[in-house]
Design a protein around this nucleic acid. Structure first.
Lengths: 336, 336
DNA sequence: CTGAAAGCGCTTACAG
DNA sequence: CTGAAAGCGCTTACAG
């Protein structure tokens, strides 16, 4: 910037004015400065610029995801990017693969770079460590899962409601023995979906059979094995509700292996690409990652704009999409 | 940092030494400084820190993708994130949706934040505007598509080779009328894949029928329509080679709509999740996004470590995965 | 082993 | 409308 000022034969402050589009620079000087900028290919250093501005914002936010490469996370990411772009804000993203340590590391790195806000799909189960950040003005929004031990905004899917709807849908088609496949119960969404499943059965006054509930399954293979075991019970399930993407895939595999994909009903939580091309097409409770991401970004920017009200907790609706697999009716054991 | 120094009763420089793990601080003073840091919850400002360091690195890189939410882009992203994490480097990511303007905007924002390097899946067709960045020390790697009008490292898939393999695979199963679905020809990968298709036919001395080549298709619907039209030709294709993910999906839809999914062969370029559960399972030429991303990051960091050799151009192999749809043999017109 | 002074690239608060 | 001085939070280059 000094070089530009020297070349243009003006003071430092005048260059600063031009670069920041501040008013009060004569057209003649402005032209000289712009010419010098062009000639020297000068680019203002945003980091230095923000250093001196009091309460300066870096115009960056940090995004903590489960895994930037999984379809749900990356859809959230895109929705947040779009909202951020409208504001000229750049986003740092990182994956923590359900490791609490990695969450803290990532946030530590974001903090060193002085991000203005954080949108967090949390892996840890105690967010008290963010209290200082919150107090000192970092905007915080929890996404997909609420904060624990911290009073902060959150945006989550209607996990329990969606699980109730899926369970009732299966019950409505005549199923009473419905297997449940759940992710790690340390993940709040998994817990909520299980609670919804139980609640759906209770509302219909169907006794819960604990042998049909398999939790802490974290990948497709675990789900495949779990369904295999359920199917060899003396009184096997006639339908399966898979509480998550990968578990749905494992469930479909298990049913196909057993040749039962047209006999045993299946509903998955969270949509899958190509779900409509599998035979039978896979019925799902679809989440709305665009809405989740957009809402989280909106809440974050509202906080950055000075909103100081109580923590907001938004719940985004989910939608049952019947495609075939969830509409299979139970076959009598004799026929099966 | 002044506050910490004051509380600990030491000089500024001593705090700086402790924070940066520099040697030569007595254990006693170090303990006092650490206590003060703890008490004041001090966090060093990485942006300010880097400002004074000469040739200071921000330990950030910028990643320009087609779309953070598409599976191919996000797999690249994850591979790059992992490599960056090993070095304590944070990544800014952004989507440009094939808009050259957006590519320049994004890179402009990254430049203002003084990223150390850029990994770019380019949307524009002239990268001369990056010459100054390159000269002033920004490391540059082009990913998935090479740079145009700029001599820079690149990592791309073996697009032409993969297309030849796919075409020869179909020829080997007796097909001579093979439809080609291609993305916008402004995208180099689309051009290469088309070239590979032509080359495969030529090697087998099969005349190319231009009516079987449809390019500039950018989404599933366009591919669906294109296949519909091909099928109503007097001499329709007995196989289809889809040059990209979404086009594969559109192609499958079109064949199913026509009830021909078991009659007309199909191979897609780039793998799809659930491809093995569709009936028939979808044969593909799979790319290796992990290897692409990892290699790009390695090249980038090698440049950042001072490597000044000629621009490197890596080609990552692709793999044909036969799953069923690509192994269908042509039915005689009479039977069809 | 320790710290006071100068400076990174910029903006603020001020005086003209 | 214009610019010289001071300062943002830190590190460098020095002197002790």
């Amino acid at each position: 910037m000094v070089d530009v000022a020297a070349l243009a034969g003006v003071g430092l402050k005048t260059v600063s004015r031009v670069v920041n589009d501040e008013p009060g620079v004569s057209p003649e000087l402005e032209a000289r400065v712009r010419r010098a900028i062009e000639q020297l290919r000068y680019r203002r250093d945003a980091n230095a610029s923000m250093l001196r501005r009091l309460g300066g914002k870096t115009q960056t936010i940090g995004l903590v995801l489960e895994d930037v490469s999984n379809p749900f996370s990356s859809a959230l990411h895109r929705a947040i990017e779009d909202a951020a772009r409208d504001r000229g804000v750049l986003v740092f993203a990182g994956s923590c693969d359900e490791h609490p340590d990695r969450e803290r590391e990532l946030i530590g790195s974001f903090r060193e770079r002085r991000v203005d806000g954080l949108i967090i799909v949390p892996a840890s189960h105690d967010h008290g460590y963010l209290y200082d950040d919150q107090r000192t003005g970092t905007a915080l929004v929890f996404l997909d899962r609420p904060a624990v031990h911290l009073d902060a905004d959150s945006v989550v899917s209607d996990n329990r409601g969606g699980a109730i709807v899926a369970t009732e849908h299966l019950l409505g088609h005549g199923h009473t023995r419905i297997g449940f496949l759940g992710d790690l119960l340390t993940i709040s969404t998994a817990k909520e979906r299980l609670a919804g499943y139980r609640q759906g059965l209770e509302l219909a006054r169907i006794a819960v059979d604990e042998r049909l509930i398999r939790t802490d399954l974290h990948d497709a293979d675990a789900a495949l094995a779990a369904v295999g075991e359920m199917l060899s019970l003396p009184d096997p399930p006639t339908a399966v509700f898979a509480g998550q993407n990968l578990l749905t895939i494992g469930g479909v595999h298990a049913l196909r292996n057993a040749g039962l994909q047209r006999r045993v009903a299946l509903i998955g939580f969270d949509d899958l690409s190509l779900a409509d091309m599998v035979d039978p097409a896979i019925s799902v409770v679809a989440q709305d990652p665009q809405a989740l991401g957009r809402s989280a970004a909106e809440l974050l920017f509202r906080r950055l704009d000075g909103e100081t009200g109580e923590a907001v907790h938004q719940v985004v609706p989910v939608t049952l999409i019947p495609r075939g697999s969830g509409e299979i009716v139970p076959t009598s054991p004799a026929v099966a």
